[in-house]
Amino acid sequence: MKRPEPVQAVKQRRDAALQSLLEGVPYIQFMGFRFDRRGDELTGVMPYQDMLIGNPMLPALHGGATAAFLETTAIVELSWAMMWNRMEAGEDVTGLRLPKTIDFTVDYLRTGLPRDAYARATVNRSGRRYASVHVEAWQDNRTRLFAQATGHFLMPSIDD
């Protein structure tokens, strides 16, 4: 039987691939989005910043910031799922093209509170050209979502 890879080598490869994906996108850096990884599972984190407020009276997060967080989480999850097999096979996955959003529908369930938000995306269908992704976002309680979204994405063609 083939000896399993040392755990550090596996982690280093996956974290480096994820990092290269995130570092390449200025908007992710601007918004301060992070992604926690457990195996192949990603959780997006939008750390609270004062600039994210949309209603200073309440105060509440801006719907646009929430939408941006959900859409970014969907794109990162989709890209990550797309690159996983190639990454695990030891291929270079840096500089891959990102999927493009076709449409995105956000359902605002509760007021976004001025604190960190988390999101997880599920790829419900991913074909050669199109993908459908659902995203859920929460703050304090995983079961009390404050927003969810579904979007369709155009996959980058392999030959590009």
Binding site: P26, Y27, G63, G64, A65, A67, V106
Partner: peptide
């Protein structure tokens, strides 16, 4: 700072969403 696709320099969908919202 709002670029979503580094290859093309196109603004992130999220920023456009925020504008429309």
């Amino acid at each position: 700072r709002l670029v979503g696709d580094p290859e093309t320099g196109v603004i992130a969908g999220g920023a456009v969403s925020a504008l429309m919202d």
